[in-house]
Write a protein that binds this DNA or RNA. Structure first.
Lengths: 228, 228
DNA sequence: GACAAAACAGGACAACCGGTCTGTTTTAAA
DNA sequence: TTTAAAACAGACCGGTTGTCCTGTTTTGTC
C-alpha cells in the first residue's frame, strides 16, 4: 500500500506529519463534544481516540491521564464557552439586564434552531465532576465565579451610571446565573428550550408580588399578611 | 430467633431469611446514596452489592439491569425526595412565595448544618442521564413537571384568594425551580450553600428593573417553537 | 406433603477500561 | 552531522465492568 507518493521532489515518503498543536486541538475538540454529549465517565478514551483519529501514544503524550484531558477541556474549552456566550456579550451590552435578556434569547433561539438541547457545558461537568475530584471542583468553581463576576461588574457599571440603585450586584448576578443554569437543566431534560423564555419573562416581570403597572409598584416585598 | 434447628438433620444450612421487600429497600437505599454521591456511571454494581450486603443473584433478581435499578431510584426515591422537600411544603405553605422562601431557607440551613453540599438528586441525575437514555429522560422530565406544577398550583390558589394577580403561574414556577436548581449547582460546585440565600434574596427583592417606566409586558413569546 | 415459583447464593465470563510499555519517526539545537 | 528530545505509533496488560448462568433455599398453594 505504499508507492503512493512518488513525487520526484520528495525523496522519502513522510507518512507522519508532526503537528503537536493540531493534534492536541483535535483531541480537545472531540473530548469537548463527547463530554458534552455523553459526559465524562461515559466517554472512554478509546472512543475519543477513534473519533479524533489519534493513537494511544499520541493522546497520552499530550494528556497523560484522562483527568488531565478533562482538566484541559474545562480550563480551555468550557471557560472559553462561558466567556463567549456570557461574559463578552455581557460586557458589550447596554446594561446588565439587557445583557441577560440578550443572552437568554440568543441561546433560546439557537437551541430552537438546532432542534435539541445538549445543556450547559459548565453545568453538565459541574454536576458530574464536582464531587469526584477537588481539582475538577476548583476549576469549575472558578469559571462559575468569573461568570458571576462579569454580571456583577456590569451591574456595578450601571450603578455608576445612575441606575440599579436598589440592586445588590452580587445577588443579582447569582440569580441570573442560577436561573440560566436551572433553566438549561430543565430544557435539557424536557428537550424543550421554551423554559428558557419562561424564566426570562418571569425574571423580567419581576419576582416581587404584583409588580405590574397600574398600581404603585412595591418592591422589597415580603408578603404582608399571613393569608389563611 | 425461633427455630434454628427446624431440621432434625445435623447438616448445617445457611439460614436465609427471605425478605424481598427488605432486600429491595436496602439496594435502593445504597443506590440512591451512591448515585447522589458519585453519580450513576461512577457507581459500579459491585460497589453497590458490597455496600448493601447483597449478592449478585439477589440484586439481579430484583433489578435485572443497572438501568432498571436507576429507573427505580428515579421513580421511587428521587420523586419522593422532590415530593418531600418541595411539593408537600409548598402545598402546606401560606402562599407560593412564602413556600418558596421556606424551602430555600430550610435547605440552606440544612446544608450549612451538615457542612457540605451533595447537590440536588434530581438535577444530578438529570444532567448525567437525560441524554443517555430516553427512558431516563422521560422519568426525570416527569418529576420536573410535577415539581413545577405544584408551585404553579399554589400560585393559582393565591390568585383565587385575591393575590398574585399580575403573576403568570407557570412562569413563576419555572423561575422558582430554575433558580433553585441553578443555585444548588453553584452551591455544590463551590461547596457553599450561601448562594442559595443570595438567590432567594435577589428573587424576593424583585428582578424587575427600577428605571423601567412603561411596562411593556408582552404576553406571549412570538417565536413559534419547533417541536422537539 | 407435593410442587411450582419466587428468593437468593455465588461463580464465571467476555468485553472493556485506563494506563504503560517499547519502538520509530520527526524536529531542532549543537 | 551528530544527537538528544519531542512527537507519534501500536501492542500489551491487569483490573474492572455489567451481566449471565447454574444451583440451592424458601415460600405459597393445592
Amino acid at each position: 500500500m505504499s508507492a503512493e507518493n512518488k513525487s520526484p521532489a520528495t525523496r522519502r515518503h513522510k507518512k507522519r506529519t508532526n503537528d503537536p498543536e493540531g493534534m492536541r486541538k483535535r483531541v480537545l475538540d472531540v473530548a469537548e463534544a463527547s463530554f458534552q454529549a455523553r459526559g465524562y465517565h461515559a466517554s472512554s478514551i478509546g472512543d475519543l481516540m477513534a473519533a479524533a483519529g489519534v493513537t494511544g501514544g499520541a493522546l497520552h503524550h499530550h494528556f497523560p491521564t484522562k483527568k488531565a484531558l478533562a482538566l484541559a477541556v474545562i480550563e480551555e474549552r468550557v471557560a472559553a464557552a462561558v466567556e463567549e456566550t456570557w461574559i463578552a456579550p455581557m460586557q458589550a451590552a447596554g446594561s446588565a439586564r439587557e445583557g441577560v435578556r440578550t443572552v437568554f434569547e440568543a441561546v433560546a433561539t439557537e437551541l430552537e434552531r438546532q432542534g435539541f438541547v445538549r445543556g450547559c457545558q459548565l453545568n453538565n461537568l459541574a454536576h458530574e465532576l464536582s464531587l469526584a475530584d477537588p481539582d475538577f471542583r476548583i476549576a469549575l468553581a472558578g469559571i462559575f465565579a468569573a461568570w458571576r463576576q462579569a454580571i456583577a461588574d456590569k451591574v456595578g457599571a450601571d450603578q455608576q451610571a445612575g441606575g440599579e440603585q436598589g440592586t445588590d450586584a452580587q445577588r443579582f448576578a447569582a440569580l441570573a446565573v442560577a436561573t440560566y443554569s436551572g433553566a438549561m437543566s430543565m430544557a435539557k431534560t424536557a428537550q424543550d428550550a421554551g423554559v428558557l423564555r419562561d424564566c426570562l419573562n418571569a425574571l423580567e416581570q419581576g419576582a416581587s408580588p404584583t409588580s405590574r403597572s397600574g398600581a404603585k409598584r412595591r418592591r422589597r416585598v415580603l408578603l404582608a399578611p399571613r393569608s389563611l
